[in-house]
């Protein structure tokens, strides 16, 4: 096996191959739970946890699984981990669990997870798979949180509402309110707001990419190097 560029794995996961913004995977939870920052963050972290565990196990067993049962085995592993995570959340983050509801079991069907298992973990060593899982997961979480934050902000003029669900009672005070008279553009919180928000985020990412592409083209016409901003 040749060398693995960890930096590349990390930048891919967080940015270049961001599962939500580039691959457009896992959109169902992405749309459904991001009506507040805390919800987004919660589901993002749960997804990351599952992703990490599944990537690690798939990578560990990658040499022993026959081709014809590869997918069923992956699905089995992922489903087990999701169930475990669901039970844990039910036990320790009860209210958040109630809010995220069906979307926790639905992590099973998040294409990101089976996608990474199939495309990365089943072909790469354990360490690299772990790094990949964390960066992909954090990239996904970042988009969920960002989308949640902007929708919460526009929709009801607050940030970190319900933080105690995730961080315990001390976090109750974290909630920020913009302006008591803010009328709240409800649309942002309702489902259409999710589509518009995601669209805007994707556009923003493309804009940034293009800006840097242009900058790089202007600066260095010589060798095509790797993108440098992480």
């Amino acid at each position: 096996m040749s060398e693995i560029s960890y930096r590349r794995i990390v930048t891919d996961g967080l940015w270049h191959n961001n599962q939500a913004l580039v691959a457009l995977l896992g959109l169902c939870p992405l749309m459904a739970v991001t009506n507040s920052l805390v919800n987004g963050l919660g589901l993002g972290l749960a997804t990351t946890a599952v992703l990490l565990m599944s990537n690690l196990s798939v990578s560990t067993i990658r040499h022993w699984v026959r081709a014809e049962v590869r997918l069923p085995v992956f699905v089995l592993i992922i489903a087990s981990f999701v169930t475990a995570v669901e039970l844990v959340m039910h036990a320790w983050f009860h209210e958040l669990y109630k809010i995220l509801g069906i979307f926790i079991p639905l992590i099973v069907t998040n294409c990101t997870i089976i996608g990474r298992a199939e495309a990365f973990a089943s072909r790469n060593p354990v360490a690299a798979s772990g790094v990949d899982a964390v960066s992909i997961g954090l990239g996904f979480t970042a988009v969920l949180s960002l989308l949640g934050a902007s929708r919460e902000l526009i929709g009801q003029g607050t940030l970190f509402s319900g933080a105690h669900l995730l961080f315990g009672e001390v976090a109750r005070a974290w909630e920020l309110t913009l302006n008591a008279d803010y009328p709240g553009v409800l649309l942002a919180i309702l489902p259409p707001g999710a589509f518009m928000g995601l669209g805007t985020l994707i556009a923003l990412k493309n804009l940034i990419d293009r800006y840097f592409d242009r900058r790089r083209a202007e600066l260095a016409p010589a060798p095509a190097t790797e993108p440098e901003q992480a």
Binding site: P183, G184, V185, L186, L187, A188, L190, P192
Partner: peptide
Amino acid sequence: ALLLVSFP
């Protein structure tokens, strides 16, 4: 629709 949903 935007207005109706946001400011019913």
